[in-house]
């Protein structure tokens, strides 16, 4: 809980999401984002930092996970817990997942980039192409011939 213990001394950064919500975030948390870090270095620190590509609900999720990630650093149990949350989200709400990862990518937060990627990777592991399409509502846009050709090419690559 390092983030809470020094909350009194830490600077607060103000950010505005694309839909106009204003967030007050501890500097230590905000600096997880390389985008915000760069903006601060460019001396936008005294103003409200606009985040035109991130909506409020998604930004809220990002902050939550930043905090969680900071907490779990040396805690294997929490790490596992956080890793397993991805499946839940992907099953119930792939859109939010997708938006979350996109936001994380935009904000350039390395730790969450890996975490969210791991979520989808875990979700995809061991599943057949057909099942993946079904679960994520992806349309099969291959012709049968193309599919056969890919299968043939895949045969040469080792698992």
């Amino acid at each position: 809980m390092a983030s809470t213990s020094n909350s009194t001394s830490s600077k607060i950064i103000t950010l505005r999401s694309s839909d106009g919500e204003v967030f007050e975030v501890e500097e230590s948390v905000a600096l997880e984002s390389n985008l915000i870090r760069r903006m601060m270095e460019d001396d936008c620190a005294n103003n409200i930092i606009p985040l035109p590509n991130v909506t409020a609900p998604i930004f809220y999720l990002v902050i939550e996970h930043c905090k969680k990630h900071a907490e779990m650093k040396d805690n294997k149990e929490k790490k596992k817990e956080l890793r397993s949350q991805g499946e839940e989200l992907l099953k119930s709400d792939p859109h939010t997942y997708s938006n979350l990862m996109e936001a994380v990518n935009y904000l350039d937060i390395k730790s969450l980039m890996d975490l969210t990627a791991q979520w989808l990777a875990d979700f995809l592991k061991g599943k057949s192409p057909r099942l993946i399409r079904e679960l994520l509502k992806i349309k099969n846009d291959f012709t049968p011939e193309e599919e056969a050709e890919i299968l043939e090419r895949n045969r040469w690559a080792f698992d």
């Binding site: 792939p94 859109h95 997942y97 997708s98 938006n99 990862m101 996109e102 990518n105 980039m113 890996d114 969210t116 990627a117 791991q118 989808l120 990777a121 995809l124 592991k125 061991g126 599943k127 057949s128 192409p129 993946i132 399409r133 994520l136 509502k137 992806i138 349309k139 291959f142 599919e147 890919i150 299968l151 895949n154 690559a157 080792f158 698992d159």
Partner: peptide, 28 residues
């Protein structure tokens, strides 16, 4: 698809976490 918003670079990052067998399946 439900995750079509995901930029290619994100999807590529996800694939980095998969083994060769899973990548093969994903390619299909």
């Amino acid at each position: 698809d439900l995750i079509s918003d995901l930029p290619d670079e994100c999807l590529a990052h996800v694939f980095q976490f998969l083994g060769a067998g899973d990548r093969k399946r994903c390619s299909l």
